[in-house]
Design a protein around this nucleic acid. Structure first.
Lengths: 161, 161
DNA sequence: ATCTAGTTGCAAACACTTCTTAGTTAGGAA
DNA sequence: TTCCTAACTAAGAAGTGTTTGCAACTAGAT
């Protein structure tokens, strides 16, 4: 229910307020500050970096809370992680250009080829960031096997409890 | 060991032999077996999985050798990792569809937008793997800042003493 | 067969993340 | 405002995934 024009950060903070209320959890200073910090940067920080930044304004905040809050924000769908989480680094002996399909449920990764995707037209803004070595596409979805499993377990779609 | 036609695995193993020789390092059983295992699977295993697999044939191999070998193979350019390695999980408060530019040197990540890339045409083979939730492009390169740094440090050694 | 630098196996260290316990603070409903 | 309790801090410990130090070993050259 935003009424006036807000900065991107304020808009995101408003979304936090809504989401927290809807989830029936508390809107604590820690949650606000941690999210504000993340929403206000383009640097995709890790937990430690975020902790140090928030600490400047809230000297008593603990690293543990940063981790817990990020986890909560993820459940609320307000925050995403970059790259895969959980499990270790995965290796690939295929050094030809190719793309990946990743199952969001079981983590399965499969290669696929596409000449078209090998030569994507990238927007000019990218070139301003630096040189381009390669570009690959990561498709995420639910693999055939996991679709079967989901169906079998007859689990109605529910939000995280 | 005398076969006329080579399987893809054998072809890759031949590349290993060459690369190892060229780099002036030793072609140990461990390196052969670890690489053979990785080159022979499409599953993009992690170090632990690879370790367990190699162990069946080489019961004395150790997990740290797997790690060290994978690192060596990476330096030789025979193996790649999927996703970012090193550092912790990185977070993103931008939940709109977007793409990433990643600097291979400093790890900097920047978002970029592209309507065109938001609606990529994916090959039909992908659909056979499972449902498609989203697809995003990851561009890797050397960011402007690191280009400057590289230039400065790669400068032909002028007489400085 | 001998030599030796590069490699390995083992254990221990390390980095990141999560969890435990216990005592305190503070959000927000009544 | 009062009260209930979720959420917090603190300090520690544990769980993963990865790296390192060191003595023993071995690939490959002589």
């Amino acid at each position: 229910m935003s009424k006036t024009k807000q900065s991107p950060v304020e808009r995101r903070l408003a979304r936090l307020t809504d989401a927290v209320r809807e989830a029936g959890i508390k809107l604590t200073h820690q949650r606000i500050e941690i999210f504000r910090e993340l929403a206000g940067t383009e640097e995709h920080p890790d937990a430690e970096t975020l902790f140090e930044a928030v600490r400047k304004r809230m000297p008593t905040v603990s690293l543990d809370t940063v981790y817990r809050t990020l986890s909560t924000l993820q459940e609320l769908g307000l925050v995403k992680t970059i790259g895969q989480q959980g499990g270790g680094t995965r290796f690939d002996a295929n050094i030809e250009p190719h793309h990946h399909y990743v199952c969001v449920s079981c983590g399965m990764i499969r290669d696929f080829e596409s000449k078209e995707l090998n030569s994507l037209r990238l927007p000019g803004t990218v070139r301003q960031l630096g040189t381009i070595l390669d570009a690959n596409v990561e498709v995420r979805g639910l693999c055939a096997k996991c679709q079967g499993r989901k169906k079998a377990s007859t689990r109605p779609k529910s939000k995280s409890s």
